[in-house]
Design a protein around this nucleic acid. Structure first.
Ligand SMILES: NC(=O)c1ccc[n+]([C@@H]2O[C@H](COP(=O)([O-])OP(=O)(O)OC[C@H]3O[C@@H](n4cnc5c(N)ncnc54)[C@H](O)[C@@H]3O)[C@@H](O)[C@H]2O)c1
Ligand SMILES: NC(=O)c1ccc[n+]([C@@H]2O[C@H](COP(=O)([O-])OP(=O)(O)OC[C@H]3O[C@@H](n4cnc5c(N)ncnc54)[C@H](O)[C@@H]3O)[C@@H](O)[C@H]2O)c1
Lengths: 215, 215
DNA sequence: ATAATAATGTGATTTAAATAGCATAAGGAG
DNA sequence: CTCCTTATGCTATTTAAATCACATTATTAT
């Protein structure tokens, strides 16, 4: 069956990403085939959901056999548009920005760090990662345009999140991964994905406290 | 109207946390009252959703006026069970763990860091934050039990995520904030909240690539 | 004092997502 | 070669979430 882009549940896209990370791990352990049931159990969901999620994009499995891990990974990479190299920058090079810059996991998914931006004079010009320089935020606009950067990880302090994200949008950044915990408003053409660590603790807190009073 | 715990949509709990962070910011700017419409616009949702979310827990607003920012914050804190002090630990004190330990934002939400665990001999015994020591993972069990720690932020390497989370569950940790990107399996009594930065970039990648082929 | 306005809170309805059920295909056992 | 098992993929149904529509109330303007 053929689906439109707009028929596809947003949550399916999230799950594809989860499946992908699980498949990476399976591949490292030389697993060649996996059933929707097994994959579901690893992804904390159920087999029907797994099959349905894939069915929006095509038929990737074989009856009686399940899914070929390698082929499924490649298919998901195509769907998520991460089969080709992508470039990203980090904006705000403090504690969190630094941690992210040293994390090797982005490369496996074809995301390559191309630049770092901050305002602290003492770090500008440094090259903390080979081939990646820290630049002043004033150089952002030209750099993004010249290098056609699509993605930015925003890890500045909260109080400048809004102004900095406006600069990002203006420079032509297509997607902002917002780590600041502050909601930002940008033109519709720029997408934002929010990650908020504190929110996670609050969610846990609620469900732990409510676990007693079931039903 | 009175709702049961199980009648309340999970997504509502997530949004409460989002509202709370926005309210904190409004309070800092001396805003006293806010309408569901205004709050919705700041939270990227709509006014009815905002009101419905609150209505599961009680009536917090005044007609024609809207919500008192302070009162609403206190109410949300009660709902999320963050009005009293909570203790958490960080397990895996590498780049990310360190960044998190220095982040002051948890205190505002009544989450206090009580201990740090790792296996690197050269950092064990250090006190990177006043009053918070780095301990060996072998001391985890006793420490968690003695200090009745409820929450743990897991930031070890992926390959030990499973074994370490089993230790956490065994020690009696109630909620794990899993930063590793690897899915972990723990007994049902232990809750897990996953945060995966790479997933965020993939989500952005998908929606940016699909934006052209609308409908 | 009355009308107009701006807001909340909640049943009713619509839409989206999850789940169930089943037809079908691939492989293995006998 | 036929039957049994296992697993996919799709349609139908159920459940959950979002939205609509409106009754209600507090405040302001006339
Ligand atoms: N840094 C990032 O931006 C980033 C992004 C996405 C995901 N992650 C994930 O977060 C986790 C931590 O990342 P990081 O960059 O801080 O890695 P890191 O290697 O800098 O830190 C890991 C720490 O865990 C410690 N450790 C190892 N085994 C342990 C054990 N058995 N018990 C306790 N501690 C142990 C190590 O000694 C080290 O200090 C990883 O799983 C990574 O995949 C990190
Ligand atoms: N560290 C965490 O664990 C954590 C957790 C949750 C949320 N956050 C959020 O992530 C963000 C970063 O946290 P952090 O701990 O790295 O903070 P940080 O203060 O260590 O780093 C912020 C960096 O941004 C730079 N900066 C300031 N203004 C700038 C501008 N206009 N343009 C570019 N860079 C600018 C600063 O010079 C600094 O290097 C914050 O918004 C924080 O709320 C962090």
């Amino acid at each position: 069956m053929k689906y439109n882009y707009s028929d596809i549940p947003e949550i399916t896209v999230r799950r594809l990403s989860v499946y992908f990370h699980i498949l990476k791990c399976l591949k490292d352990n030389n697993v060649e085939f996996i059933s929707s049931k097994q994959l579901a159990s690893l992804a904390h969901t159920n087999a029907v959901s797994v099959r349905k999620d894939f069915s929006y994009f095509g038929e990737f499995g074989k009856k009686h056999i399940g899914y070929n891990v390698n082929y499924l990974m490649k298919s998901i990479m195509k769907i998520l548009n991460i089969s080709k190299k992508n470039s990203y920058i980090i904006v705000g090079y403090g504690n969190l920005g630094t941690a992210i810059s040293f994390f090797p996991g982005f490369k496996d998914e074809n995301f390559f760090l191309k630049g770092i931006f901050d305002i602290k004079e003492e770090i500008i010009g440094k090259e903390p990662i080979e081939g990646v320089k820290v630049m002043h935020i004033d150089e952002l606009n030209d750099f993004v345009k010249e290098n056609r950067i699509k993605f930015a990880i925003l890890s500045t302090p909260m109080n400048v999140a809004q102004v900095v994200s406006e600069k990002l949008a203006k420079a032509g950044i297509k997607g902002i991964l917002n780590m600041t915990g502050r909601h930002i408003r940008v033109p519709e053409k720029t997408l934002v994905f929010d990650i908020n660590i504190v929110t996670g603790l609050e969610w846990l807190s609620y469900f732990i406290s409510k676990k007693g009073d079931k039903k």
